[in-house]
Amino acid sequence: MPLIEFKKEGLYVPAADVYIDPWRRVRKALITHGHSDHARWGHQQYICSHHSKPIIKHRLGDINVHGVAYGEELSVNGVKFTFFPAGHIVGSAQIRVEHQGEVWVVSGDYKTEDDGISGTFSPIKCHTFITECTFGLPIYTWVPQQQVFDKINHWWSTNQANGVTSILMGYSLGKAQRLLAGIDASIGPIYTHGAVEQMNAVIKTAGIPLPPTKYLNKEVTEKELAGSLVITPQGATRSTWMKRFGQVSLANASGWMQLRGARRRGGADRGFVLSDHADWQGLNDAITATGAETVYATHGYTNVFKQWLDSRGLDARVVQTKFEGELSEENSVESSQSDKLPSDE
């Protein structure tokens, strides 16, 4: 019997009778992070990292959730579970599962560059690695984040000098905080959309420092806004909410912005390539460092990625999950509005 089975409810550890990031209702669910395609509604018990706990509670309401520390060993029926930082968003974790000498790691979503708020990803030795591969193609290589933030700061400063309001779009959980943590907040005032403001408050309770922001409520005038930065989820920019802003420059911050076609289709003035997922090099380095001989690819460009890993002598397999990868760009618009559809960016 394999340590982890792929069942219709989700990733299942039979020896412990628990699930990891299940998409159907189960009794006990271990959760890698707070995004809605990983932390779903309706389980009897949730176990996640301490930092994830307030996020999940905020999104799912009154649930039974237990927090564990990174590196703390949790034993269920003799199976040992340990959460390690995944570097994806605040509180995100990879979950190490050990039973009778066999080790599997479920990556959840991860990125290999340290963003300062999501913990430092480091690969964990294992026999079998279950990995995402959202950006599992060699066209997706990220430049160091400081270069991206330099560009964002420059864009904002230039807009400010021209009296233009800078609107930066990113998912309310994860991207919004990463932007806030990386941006030069001394340039000017930063306003946030309600969804971002609420999430920020939750994340601050987890002890993560973020620069001061102002909630962009109805009372804020066009004049006050001029030259400032507004951080908002994608969906909001199509609503009437944005109509009153006067002269604006609209920018998107996402890994999908790597491709010119996606940048132009997005309809934004600028596209900054900033992702909370590992790039091609990151995925490859991480997989090599785990020493795993068997690799399951769960979401992203899975077929191509599997073929690539096979050609490197690994035993790679594609497993169908309900985690979103390839479609997240398309979905993020709707999910930031309704929060019903899954998204990981």
Binding site: L137, R260, G261, Y301, S311
Partner: peptide, 26 residues
């Protein structure tokens, strides 16, 4: 130059949809 098998480059090119850009990216 990118040290990639040709099939993988071709797959990437299909995703990018533009040869000049796909080459520049890899």
């Amino acid at each position: 130059e990118a040290n990639l098998p040709l099939w993988l480059f071709e797959e990437s090119y299909h995703i990018v949809g533009d040869l000049a850009e796909a080459i520049a990216l890899v």
